[in-house]
């Protein structure tokens, strides 16, 4: 028998349960992680993987975004003779919004998926159990370094993406739209506020945490076998992406000044 109330109730309760589990997982990972012992090697490894090896994909995303942004805003703003605002539009959009969000989504696909797959495989092959039997807390050894590395490295990554994105706009602005190089750079910095960049970097840290959190949570609680790991990976990327877009609004609202 299909009872719609039951279906809805089931869904709501299930969602609440998952949210609770995720929050509990995060609190536990952080509470245990900060108390040590600390594992520097996994932390360093994760920082390099997230911060350095994500550079190509994030850089490419940023440069094309900056280029497209310059073209599109030129088209739009030239309709009311405001094409001089292109440089400002590019830098504000990139630093406040597109840099962190696009980098976050790319990192979710690259790093979040890898974390879920790695931890999921470790769960399935009993490596996580083996850690426990070898006097090592998997939360401290596996989860905490990933959370910390992603939270620390995402702002760095986004700062670089900001620079590359602005450069993309510069290239198009100078080569195609007829701005003078010095003029474009001046216009970029004239109306840029520290708050724009800071807001973007705060977002980046939040997104980094979300990506690592969902990657670790899904991998850690992965189901059995290849299918379980596959599902965990998909869930990690999808849930991280949705959460990034949700958190994006919340953080923007916090930094929003009239």
């Amino acid at each position: 028998m299909i009872n719609p109330f039951r279906l809805v109730g089931h869904g709501v309760l299930g969602t609440c349960e998952t949210v609770g589990e995720i929050v509990l997982f995060a609190v536990q990972a952080i509470a245990r992680g900060v108390r040590g012992p600390y594992y520097w090697r996994p932390l360093l490894q994760q920082m390099i993987d997230i911060g350095f090896y994500s550079l190509p994909v994030v850089g490419l995303t940023a440069i094309f975004t900056g280029m497209v942004l310059a073209l599109q805003s030129y088209t739009g703003f030239s309709r009311f003779e405001a094409q001089s605002a292109v440089a400002t539009i590019v830098v504000v959009s990139i630093t406040r919004e597109l840099g962190p969000v696009l980098a976050g989504l790319m990192v979710a696909g690259r790093v979040g998926a890898a974390m879920a797959a790695e931890l999921g495989t470790m769960r399935v092959t009993e490596q996580i159990d083996a850690l426990s039997t070898l006097s090592t807390d998997p939360m401290r050894y596996l989860v905490f370094p990933r959370l910390l590395a992603a939270t620390l490295m995402m702002p760095v990554l986004v700062l670089i993406a900001d620079i590359i994105g602005v450069m993309g706009g510069f290239i198009v602005g100078v080569a195609k739209l007829g701005f003078g190089p010095q003029d474009y750079i001046n216009r970029t910095f004239d109306f840029l506020e520290t708050g724009d960049v800071v807001a973007g970097l705060v977002k980046a840290a939040v997104f980094g945490f979300i990506v690592a959190m969902m990657g670790c949570f899904q991998g850690y609680n992965s189901g059995r076998g290849a299918q379980g790991v596959g599902t965990a990976t998909t869930r990690a990327v999808v849930s991280a992406s949705i959460m990034i877009l949700t958190a994006d609004y919340i953080v923007t609202e916090l930094f929003f000044a009239k």
């Binding site: 470790m122 092959t125 009993e126 490596q127 159990d129 083996a130 850690l131 039997t133 006097s135 807390d137």
Partner: peptide, 23 residues
């Protein structure tokens, strides 16, 4: 408790079915 359990586990060794080696 977790701490107590960690203490007990120090006296244990375990050979897992698939080896469970850290790859």
């Amino acid at each position: 408790g977790r701490r107590e359990m960690e203490e007990i586990r120090r006296r244990f060794g375990m050979l897992f079915q698939g080896g469970a080696l850290f790859d």
